[in-house]
Design a protein around this nucleic acid. Sequence first.
DNA 1: GCAGACTCACTTTTT
DNA 2: GTGAGTCTGC
Length: 748
Amino acid sequence: MDYLNSLNESQRKAVTHTEGPVMIIAGAGSGKTRVLTYRIAYLIQNGVDPYNILALTFTNKAANEMRQRIEKVVGAEARNLWMGTFHAVFARILRAEAEKIGYTKNFTIYDTDDSKSLIKSILKENNLDDKIYKPNIVLNRISAAKNRLISPGEYMNNPIITNEDKENMRPELGRLYKIYSERCYKAGAMDFDDLLFNTSILFRDHLDVLNKYQNRFKYVMIDEFQDTNLTQYYITRKLAAQNQNICVVGDDAQSIYAFRGADIQNILNFAKDYPDLATYKLEQNYRSTKTIVNAANDVISKNKNQLPKHVFTENEEGNLIEVLKANSDNEEGKLIATSIFESKMLHQLKNNDIAVLYRTNAQSRPIEEALRKMNIPYRIVGGISFYQRKEIKDLLAYLRYTINPNDEEAFRRIINYPRRGIGDATVLKIIATTEEQGANLWDVLCNIKSIIPGRGSEQVEDFVNLIKTFQKSVDEKDAYEAASMIAKESGILKELYDDKTPEGVARFENVQSLLNAIKAFTDDPENEDKKIGAFLQQVSLLTNADETKNEEGDKVTLMTIHSAKGLEFKHVYIAGLEEDLFPSQTMLTSREDLEEERRLFYVAVTRAEKWLTLSYATTRYRFGKLRPCEPSRFLTEMNPKYLRLSSKIITQEEIPLSYNHNVKTSAKNLVSSSKPKIKYTMPPDFKPSDTSDLQKGMRVEHPKFGYGTVIKMDVNGTDRKAVIDFEEVGEKTLILTFAKLRIHPQQN
DNA sequence: GCAGACTCACTTTTT
DNA sequence: GTGAGTCTGC
């Protein structure tokens, strides 16, 4: 156990104090993951069966990383450890115990889109205005209730909550919550919050089950404790009630998920609930320079709500924090790209050592453009997940529906895709019938003749028979064989194969890679259950952040601050430090919200090891307009002695004209807009996320003039003139304004 | 049932 | 500015 020697005193105490309740307050960069890893390794090496250890994290990424680190220390034994996100672990328990709470083991997990779509249909059926009952608000409200362990019944009987809803002119929310829950239950589905909520129900109502897991999990550990909500806390407290071996690790200064129900109170309550609690504080930062640690402390000290602690470092003083000021968002991108180029040269950095962090995903575009121009490779974490893509969701919906034919949202997705002549009217009638009769969706479909006697029922019967053959195949075959068969027989593959547009080809390839992923799942010897059901359970809890590992190579990382949590880079850039953007305008309604923004900034700053660059722009395109911006208050909250204003001379801005990110949409808008717009024919190496300039030699299409080739580009202020030789009408000069893809035809 | 025209929300972050 | 969604007329 020589690794113990590599720890400082408080770290070592936190690792070796294994019995009884322990709370570890771990400042940023204080070696939190090391402590957790070694703690588990220490337990195992002291004779604790890995089978008896439960470690809960917030992201799959964190769970995987920790598992790998533990395996390095203790070897393959770590395999039996239960380590995963709250949602994944509870989903696994629920799958095993589903019958106890009236579900089958093949219950569906609704993602946010499914939930929203279900809420929309409930609103429609109940004639409620979706402008007042915005699906997002309804869902958030329901989610908040579940995260606070409030059932629909309790919701409606709680005068405080119902009054709140009445004041907000949404008196029906309680009823909606009830209907929503019933619908999910009938569809054999749980949303993300249900995975937690239903686990707590399971443990509340079935003491035998609770006892079983209490006996199993003799040691419970929770990472990122500051981000737990009440329901999560309640469940883990119950699990640990017998053995009292519960260890939580967190940092109140890094709590950035209050918006989804995280409750810092949990940290405070923890001490009350466990009077014999041992608390350890990890205050030495090993990651960053003195300058960065002190500047971060400057900012976070402005928060009133926090536990007393003093984060310090014995690292070198380090470089001053550079502040870049740009005239616009595009220029900000350029300054950052230039600075990255210089920093790589000056400090001998690899692209992997560098990250650009921002508040919202929308900020990535100008930075991407600048990096591309300077030929600096980058990767984007986040954005649209592979599993969010339409074609992937379509195939998954077929798989979901086959194993759970009461899954209403999957049904809506696939009933008429590919087209089989079943329209909205028929679907509405089917859903209405299930509601009226209190029947199951699948039973209604199997008896469709008695509901819709004449037209349309044949198509539905064909659909039912199709699903029946799928069910047979799922029962008999493994996940890969069944999925390939379903992809083919459902017509999805053919539909996409016939689409020869670049996007269609990409979609076809995406479906193929989903099938490959299923094959990998089937071939993985670690997976005992090779059926589709097991695959789906796993896949529905994956998120976009989990795909970064596929992106290899030496690249600069671009991501939101939220996804940067737990990571570190030698040189960190924080972009868009403008009031209203960061701190975000929508967040500035209360002091608590501002404090969460400040914690977010603290998280961003403390990702940096050696160099930190902050940037802001004085004007920025937001919501389609160029708006003036003020520097963020976070900049002034830092002691100026840590800062160095960049002396770079800012050049007159050159405004790039770029492709849309989503080519399909631009094509669609082209057709639908009354104003003529220009359409580019994409170069052969064009990728959907590509953005680059219109250049000489490119082939374009114009709705009025047809096809042509760009023979000259002129830049004049914010306008760019393109001289295009059209095949039908000859040469035309078109002015392309900043607005993408739009032309002003009056000049020709 | 579908294509095209038009409207409007969305700009937070994740499981 | 963008994308999703709805409306309208065939």
